[in-house]
Amino acid sequence: MYVNLGIGIPTLVANYVGDKDITLQSENGMLGMGPFPFEGEEDPDLINAGKQTITELKRTAYFDSAQSFGMIRGGKIAAAILGAMEVSEQGDLANWMIPGKLVKGMGGAMDLVAGVGRVIVVMDHTNKHGESKVLKECTLPLTGKGVVDLIITNLGVLEVGHKGLHILETAPDVTRDDIRAATEATIV
């Protein structure tokens, strides 16, 4: 299975792949992304989408950015695991800018959510003010509309359904009521 990991919290997923047959795609032109290098073995020509130094594996293949997004847009990547600023109960995703404040850009996120089989968001459930990031409607400019399938937060795992979100799992010592209390979106 081919999977793309976004920058930030999603990069940690690489530590839990174990012996599953998963090949990680790095959108800057690599399939088969390996772990961080040992000190002294960093290579400036070998980085991931977060510009971090990484290593290659036996199965690694390199290609250019047009081909990289060809395989993303073309539906060849099974899943993308992305960070988010806001997610809505319809599966809308906002993760690329805060008007007037923060201008970073969407990078490859808009291409990924439009092209991959399954979009999984990994994020904190609430922002630093304690407000829900899982909303009825996103307030920030969207990365994609109706694109998110699964939301994994520090409180639990929620699936985007037709009439709202379904709680699939709760984190240790977290109850369903805790998740409902911390979520603005509709939970069915």
Partner: peptide, 23 residues
Amino acid sequence: PQGTLAERMRAAGCGIPGFYTKT
């Protein structure tokens, strides 16, 4: 979007003035 940017360059280089994308 990153893939749109890459494809806009590639397309122009291939003599393709425009293309449709879901992105």
